[in-house]
Design a protein around this nucleic acid. Structure first.
Lengths: 209, 209
DNA sequence: AACATTACTAACCGATCGTTCAGTTAGTAT
DNA sequence: ATACTAACTGAACGATCGGTTAGTAATGTT
């Protein structure tokens, strides 16, 4: 089904998205540099040169995949900010939204989280990631001033640790498992906000004392 | 200073460790696959072939670096188990120890955490990592049965999230910063065990009610 | 001085890399 | 039928890859 309802003209075959999906999967399996255009072509059932009909370069494939992940994450941040609640609630939205994006776009986000900044494309992606991280840190600071989050911990350290926890999901989560994205987000929020310690009467007395 | 106190014989130059340090730094900067033996030689001020006097292959350099990181982490686990305290205390020791190893051996641990398992060397390293993760999960389960950790969360998910948080330290921690390893370990434990939520009277009442 | 040991270089190898080019194939639109 | 459009092929390009070989340089030991 194409966008205008009529069939696509010309010889049928891959479009950019179809190639992108296969490419990102391969990049994640072997690493971007270790994935040659040759094995990519094999996976697609095409010749190497056919790929260059859809993308100008290997780099451009990476760029498109990273933009997919970054746009989704930036969207989460935008929605959270637009919600207009208290900082703690906006942070909650941002964290849960990030988990959902991670799960929904596992391949491209996985790729994003492995970028090291060796090319111009990678450096631009890293810059957008840093902007995202700064926005999260600002949310944590606001929630601390608000009095909802403990303020004995440095906001940037907290933000990095919590997002380290969230980002690590790409290392082990596989779709179709027992846990869905909602349950996973609940678990992350539970650990991050309330911690693992068993709430005993001892603990309550400690809090009261 | 060599091990037996006398000077080394033969022409002076690099030893394996000296080359290893430079190589691991380069691997972390560019990625293992994207780091050519040529640029490695340039960084060392040597010819490519000189490196093969010290290592049989590029793969062997990686193997040595990964073993360095894995041995240190396995040592932490061994010490924690040998301490013989309650599960929660052994887990505490393991988490703090892991943070210390991460900081003390930042380069090799960073390299380890990026391994994807495309070669036999990488697969062996991943197998040792998985064994480490299973041991941590077992500690969490024991602490849950013991009643020290809340048991409404799946132990393997908890173990993965907490170690995701710890491992993410390699992404941003740089030695010589304001925070030393002890403070960092305290912060990690604080977030993981007690969470970020401000302990208010509301919270206490919620616990009591 | 002769020797053993260790470290290293220059030149080269076959394989593989990302990319280009000129032409071909398979479909829709008129 | 004819034109048009998009998808694709096969062969080749220069560059770079990890690795090899044969020989040389610089030290400590005797």
């Amino acid at each position: 089904m194409s966008e205008n309802g009529s069939l696509r003209r010309g010889r049928p075959g891959y479009d950019q998205q179809g190639i992108l999906d296969v490419a990102v999967a391969a990049f994640n399996q072997y690493g971007y540099d270790a994935t040659s255009m040759g094995v990519l072509a094999d996976r697609l059932g095409l010749s190497k040169s056919a790929i260059y009909h859809h993308f100008a370069s290997k780099d451009e494939i990476l760029e498109r995949a990273l933009d997919d992940a970054l746009s989704a994450l930036e969207g989460v941040l935008h929605d959270a900010d637009a919600s207009g609640g208290r900082a703690a609630d906006r942070l909650d939205l941002a964290l849960r939204g990030a988990v959902h994006v991670l799960v929904a776009r596992l391949p491209s986000v996985t790729l994003l989280l492995r970028v090291r900044g060796n090319t111009e494309v990678e450096r631009r992606a890293l810059a957008r990631r840093r902007a995202f991280d700064r926005a999260i840190t600002a949310l944590v600071e606001e929630a601390q001033r608000e009095g909802t989050l403990r303020s004995d911990l440095d906001a940037s350290v907290v933000a990095r640790l919590v997002f380290g926890m969230i980002n690590s999901i790409v290392e082990w989560y596989r779709p179709g498992g027992r846990e869905d994205a909602d349950k996973l987000a609940d678990d992350v929020i539970a650990v991050a906000l309330d911690g693992l310690r068993m709430p005993t009467s001892n603990r309550v007395q400690e809090l009261l004392g």
